[in-house]
């Protein structure tokens, strides 16, 4: 069985570092990315089992980014993390789209639980061809 690959996009180094530390302890292959633009570049060459995205980042917000990626690579799985659910529309979008969400700060157990759940859960696929993501094919 292949290692599950996870991409973490967050502008805060301590969060990236924390995620890497926790997830690698459970044998996940973790790629870290400090900005959205770099994240998109990485996605061009590699596919991931899960992408963890922070909402509030200096360049853009994580929700828009996840939408953009979803469009490009349908079936991609996400875990949204945030220290703060405001402004209001974010919380509503998350609830409405039934996105996987984990509030910061989290303990290692909480993150692992959320990641497992997000990977197992079927992606919200709207496309008729329920084919696996590009990442899966590459694997």
């Amino acid at each position: 069985m292949n290692k599950k690959t996870i991409l973490v996009i967050d502008d805060d180094a301590i969060v990236l570092k924390s995620c890497k530390r926790i997830l690698e302890s459970e044998d996940y292959s973790v790629t870290l990315c400090p900005s959205a633009t770099q994240g998109i570049d990485i996605l061009k060459s590699s596919a991931f089992s899960l992408i963890i995205i922070d909402i509030l980042m200096p360049c853009c917000n994580g929700l828009n980014l996840s939408e953009k990626i979803e469009k490009e690579y349908p079936g991609t799985k996400f875990l949204i993390i945030s220290g703060y659910m405001e402004p209001k529309p974010f919380s509503e979008i998350i609830i409405e789209k039934k996105m996987n969400f984990l509030p910061k700060p989290f303990t290692p157990d909480e993150l692992l639980k959320a990641v497992k759940f997000a990977i197992i859960k079927n992606p919200e696929s709207t496309g008729k061809n329920n084919k696996t993501s590009k990442g899966d094919i590459d694997e």
Binding site: I14, K17, R21, S25, G83, P103, K104, P105, T107
Partner: peptide, 13 residues
């Protein structure tokens, strides 16, 4: 919250 994540993560680890 971000630094707290770090503190919690590494304390628990």
């Amino acid at each position: 919250n971000n630094p707290l994540t770090g503190v919690l993560t590494f304390t628990y680890m």
